[in-house]
Structures are given as C-alpha cells and as structure tokens.
Nucleic acid binder design. Structure first.
Lengths: 198, 198
DNA sequence: TGCCCTGTATATCAGACCGATATACGATGC
DNA sequence: GCATCGTATATCGGTCTGATATACAGGGCA
C-alpha cells in the first residue's frame, strides 16, 4: 500500500488532478496519512504508464494545464485487489516523544515549549477533523468508514492531550526549593515553522 | 532529527554495536520510532566519518567482529544541539485506517479480520510496554522521560482499542434481516506476516 | 501604481528511509 | 540429524520526504 494505491483510492470518488488529490489527502487523511507532490506526481505518471488511470489535459489561460486523471477499469480492479490483499500497518513516528524521552537533557523552558506546541498541534488537528465532519455532513452524511476514522482521530488525540496535561509535571526536575537546577540546554525561541510538505 | 541523531542518543547511555542499538530502539522506542539495520549501519558509518562517534573492532570466534561504537565529545555536543534545535514532528501513518476509510469496498469478513488483527497488535504493544517498565524498574527506577513516554503509549493505545471495540459495529452494513449483503471482496486468510524491518 | 502574499497547478531532485536479502556460525529444539 | 533462532555484519532497489523551481491570477494595502 503506497502512494500509488492511495491515488487510486482518491480517484475512486471521481476524476481529479494531482493538486486535487493532495487536497483530498489533506482534508480526509490528514491525521493518518499524508503525501506530498513529490510522491503524487510520480505516482500518477507511473499509474498512467501502467494503464490504471487515464489522463486528459485541459488547457488553461496562463496557468499550467490541468491534467485530469480518471480511474480505468483495470485501475479499479487493482485498487480492490490492494484493499483485499494488503496487510495493514499502523505506525507512529514521533520526534516529540523522542525528545521527551531525553527530558533529562532538556532545559525546563525548552521542555515546556515542546509540550505546549504539541498540545496546540493536537488542538489544531482536532479542530480540523470537526470542521471536516461538519462541512461534509452538510452535503451528505459521512460514509461509515469516514465517520469511523474521524472518530478514531478524535478519540486518540483527545486521550493523548489529556495524558500530556495530566503528566507533564512529572517531566520536570523535583524542584527542591532553592536547589537551583543546572541549565543543561538553553531554550531558544523557535519560529513556528511547520514543515512544508510540498 | 534522523536515524543518525537517534544513534547518538542511544550511545549516550553507553557504548554499543549497531545490533545493540537496534535492540535498544525495539525495547525502548518501539511504539513511536523504529529503525532497521538498513538505516543504522550507514548512519554509524557516517557518524564515524564525521568524528561524532569512535569505533573499535572486537574480534570474535566464528561470528563477525563486533564493532563497538562510542560517543565522542563532539558527538555529545552535536546530540545536545539537536535536542535543543529540533522542531519535533509527530506523525501517524496508518494503512489500517486507510483500509477502514474504504470499508464500503471491503467484505464484512475481511473487515472483521483487519479490526481483530489491529486489536491484537495493540494488545501486543501494550504488553511489550508493561514488560519493559517492569523489567527496567527491577534494575533501577525509570527516568521521568522513559516513564512518560511509556505512559503515553499505554494511554493512547488503550484509548484506541476502546474506541475500536465501541464503534466497530458501525462499519458493518445495516444488516437488514435477510437482505443478503453483496460480497464485494472475498476475505482471504492471511499469513500473519509481520514486516521484517531488518 | 507598485508590491507582496496567497492560491492554483505543474514538476524535479538529493538525501533519507524501508524492507528484503546475503553471509556466517553457535546453540537450542524436536 | 535437521530446522530454527540468536548474534552480528552489510548492501541494495525502490519509495518517500521536503525543498525548490516555474508561472500567473487575484486580493490587500499603501
């Protein structure tokens, strides 16, 4: 199950350009799967070469041509095969937790900043899911699958936030009154720099 | 923050071989960061070339030589810099949730098998974390960071399991008595095939 | 008017990562 | 006697990541 398969899945809901597909991933899969243009465009080229999608080019004034992709019969079959045969993985990669594992090497202010930032990220993601649900539900009821994965995201991120809020204090040194804690590492104001994921 | 940095972190607890480092990742970071030999050995080679770790070779009878790596002063500094400067990411990649999003294209039996397997995976991971805590705590108390990330893993995976158990029924078609649900995709017995991650 | 930023839309590229595979041998299990 | 597991190294093709390039329309703003 790679980006190619995900593109087939996105196209199973209707024709789309690479740009649209990325939008779809961001709206729909943001909390459990993301792909950048660097994955999507090569994937679409490869799918076209394999005859799993067809492509027609729509000229535009000024802007680059839109390339509208459509699932072929073979593509639809290939996607169903993937759904049937994939052994699904489920994997977290968290530099946030790595950093906290090394809490003993972090300055308290830095630690607090990291934790606060992660809580804000969870809040943002939760808000995004709620908006997605509301916005889609306005058009037509969410499919059971979509509803389930949104609920999953909300449940897990809410639990994560609660755990962090309840236990963040345990990461700080015991703060023995006056026992000035050595500053191991200076905290540094960080530009909020969200990775671009082009 | 890449595998190189994680290797520096692992070596901050003492000298180790590439093999040891992988074991360390599996024991300690399994639920939020994993790296295979294909990442670790090149990383160690590159760190050695950069002077951030030193390496001495211990001959063995029969088996390949052990290459024991040690953090240099420069390596320790580089690691602390990374801890101070990294903007931590936190990212889930779940084919499991992708599959469930497309529940409408899955045969009910397949759906059940996927969900059951994921619940077993969570159970296994939870057991692993508990064992790690018990086993380490026997030697010396867990560091606050280690304790926190273990608790995080347990909280999140418990919440995920509970959510799945509570809502899995919503993924099945409304099962109108006798309204034989079309079998869209046959379920297929899968060899339990856990990815090797060499 | 000029300037910058955002949104639409394509695409490439170096570097990192993933998972499979190869090699080798001792010990353990059946 | 043979298979499997654990120790220990390493490479490799294929994929993914994140930065960057190009190009123009439209809106905000001074």
């Amino acid at each position: 199950m790679d980006v190619k398969d995900l593109c087939l899945g996105a196209l199973s809901f209707g024709d789309a350009t690479g740009y649209d597909i990325k939008k779809f991933f961001e709206n729909t899969f943001s909390h459990f799967f993301l792909a950048g243009y660097g994955s999507i465009y090569p994937a679409l080229a490869s799918l076209t070469a394999a005859g799993l999608v067809s492509c027609r080019t729509l000229a535009q004034h000024g802007k680059p041509d839109r390339k509208l992709y459509r699932l072929t019969a073979a593509g639809r079959r290939a996607f169903l095969d993937t759904l049937r045969d994939t052994t699904p993985r489920h994997r977290l990669k968290s530099e946030f937790l790595v950093l906290l594992y090394f809490a003993h090497l972090l300055a308290p202010a830095r630690l607090q900043a990291i934790v606060d930032q992660q809580l804000r990220n969870f809040d943002g993601n939760l808000k995004h899911i709620r908006q997605y649900e509301d916005c889609c539900a306005a058009a037509q009821p969410l499919s059971p699958g979509a509803h389930f994965v949104c609920g999953y995201g909300k449940a897990v991120m809410t639990a994560a936030s609660e755990y962090i809020r309840a236990h963040r204090h345990s990461l700080l040194p015991p703060t023995g009154r006056g026992a000035a804690p050595r500053k191991l590492i200076q905290a540094r104001r960080q530009p909020v720099h969200t990775a671009s994921r082009n």
